[in-house]
Design a binder for these strands. Structure first.
Lengths: 341, 341
DNA sequence: TTGTACGCGTTATCAA
DNA sequence: TTGATAACGCGTACAA
């Protein structure tokens, strides 16, 4: 790897001049010198040493993307990128980061101290946090004083330290459950594997829809799926038995929806004749299962893109329009809801 | 951010001593000094400046992970991480990289020059390449003279410049097609969206199975699915019409399999009564579709992990056992193949 | 056992 | 219009 110093000596110039040409600070450089330097730079395929550059400038050009492991989802995979929602979001982030001339460093951990360590070491210029719970976001912000954008993080204490990019989870779910109610359903279960974050907001949407329709809610209607890896089958069996008392099931993600659908069909349920199902996310699963899944649509790639763009804006000093950006959710009607009565 | 210099002056020591304590080079430091320094380091939460460290040592501690965009797969998504195989593999890499004390930088591009630029700038210590075609791997290796591990890359000219981590694609496919033949099938289509890389190897496996059973192959049996985003529906319609002449379809990925299954069912095909289907990958899709998909199993997370571990071994000077590592593929029998005749 | 001094490649300041 | 030179923070050879 050739250095500026070497180039300067070979051309009989100073490093300053070479550096200036590289950075287009050519107001005070003669046209002839510019041409000579540029030609040489191409010849030797000069590539800057980014460590030296960052050291000199106190920056990093790195966007840290941190995923916190969701322990309650380990039953389904211990690889968080198996979740296609997460994966697509990362793809959206990567693209926006790259197009803005930044670099992306991906880090997965469930230890906030470790996370802080990592971002401090690399001195990342900005941070995107996903699946942070409770005060995780605030804990990171307390130690890291550069721009932070969270995705799908609803802190109890609203913080000024970061911007959140989320979805109208409450509204989307409410709309979906209302659709069930319009179709005559009154025994509607709510299916998830946790009570926090987005799923809590979705639960509120579900409750609101029930309430506005004057339907009684009982804790029994909350289908909490919290198996260990070993007890998955047993838990599914239990849920399927319980499902007989319901005419419809709202599931907090397409994955849960297709898993429970497969299990129900195994046990002789016809869908939607015996039980209606609604999912959430609208990813490929919902379009290839049988029957095709009615679901709440959201755009994971777009979510990642928006988060990255806002973050890079912050780094560049652009004031954000809002501290709490919510993308739109909408019901995508397919074939898993039946009109009854 | 506090520096070693600052720490040294505050403790009345030299930077050398502080640095030595940090790196555990404590043979020549008094126990008392060690304790004093360590205590202080914790108090001030010292974090090294990695740019300075890398600059001084000419390393980076970064593993570059480069994905080349697969243009022939754009019909299905322009986000390569929508492909759950790719996403899971990334998850496997990330974990192994992190556990080895390295950092991962993800970069997606279809421009080899851009890719080389990126890895040169960061001077990454090692490189994992995915979905490289033809001589892509060699082109990168020509410019980048540090360890490279490719995943699923079968170059025409075998190169000494990198190690490949792949799968027994040929054998896995052959086994699957033989299973179809054992079940009485003789009109077996081969379904994919390209003729390169792993899918070519799988095609050879398919051909071998046919040949060993004395079954004639015609180019017609190759179901090439190469739509634009707009012509997806039209192409699917055409394939489904063609499928009437076959009793079984081998699909090069679970995703294609579930997509074609859904399309066939829409058109009144019963699976497996009217047509048998086999997929490839054994990801979640195959387990939640109806009926459950018989497929060739592989472990994407493991593939990523193995690639990363070999790469880090190379960086540390460990000689690899083989230049061409092949993980095992095996047939996972479920419910989409029917015995006929 | 500890300290001095230099090099890593770049950028920035200021003088020529 | 160009060039010396210091600074960024760290690691290390060598001196004390």
């Amino acid at each position: 790897m050739i250095t500026i110093k070497e180039i300067a000596s070979r051309l009989g110039l100073s490093t300053t001049t070479v550096s200036n040409v590289i950075h287009g600070k050519t107001k005070e450089v003669s046209a002839e010198t510019i041409a000579r330097v540029q030609k040489f730079l191409e010849e030797v395929e000069y590539v800057p040493n980014i460590n030296a550059r960052n050291l000199a400038q106190g920056q990093s050009k790195i966007i840290g993307v941190v995923l916190k492991t969701l322990d309650f989802r380990l039953w389904y995979s211990d690889n968080i990128l198996s979740d296609s929602f997460v994966a697509e979001m990362i793809g959206g982030i990567e693209r926006a980061v790259r197009e803005a001339g930044y670099y992306m460093m991906l880090y997965i951990s469930d230890d906030i101290a470790e996370i802080i360590q990592h971002i401090s070491i690399w001195n990342v210029d900005g941070l995107i946090l996903f699946s942070m719970m409770d005060d995780d976001g605030n804990r990171v912000a307390a130690k890291y004083h550069k721009p932070i954008v969270c995705i799908d993080t609803y802190s109890s204490e609203k913080s000024d330290d970061f911007i959140n990019v989320g979805l109208d989870d409450e509204k989307g779910t409410c709309q979906a459950v209302k659709y069930l109610i319009e179709n005559g359903h009154r025994k509607i279960g709510f299916f998830t594997d946790n009570r926090v974050g987005v799923d809590r907001e979705r639960f509120w949407g579900y409750r609101r829809a029930l309430k506005e329709a004057g339907i009684e809610y009982s804790d029994r209607d909350f289908f909490l799926f919290k198996p260990t890896k070993e007890s998955v089958d047993r838990n599914i069996e239990k849920l399927c038995r319980k499902a007989r008392d319901y005419t419809a099931l709202f599931c907090c993600s397409d994955i849960y929806a297709v898993i429970i659908m497969a299990a129900l069909k195994d046990r002789g349920f016809r869908i939607p004749e015996d039980i209606s199902i609604i999912g959430f996310d609208d990813n490929l699963y919902s379009r290839v299962c049988t029957p095709r899944l009615t679901t709440v649509h959201q755009d994971a790639t777009q979510k990642g893109k928006v988060a990255a763009e806002i973050l890079i804006g912050l780094i560049r000093g652009v004031k954000p329009v809002s501290k709490d950006v919510r993308l739109e959710a909408r019901l995508e009607i397919r074939d898993t809801v039946k009109k009854i009565n």
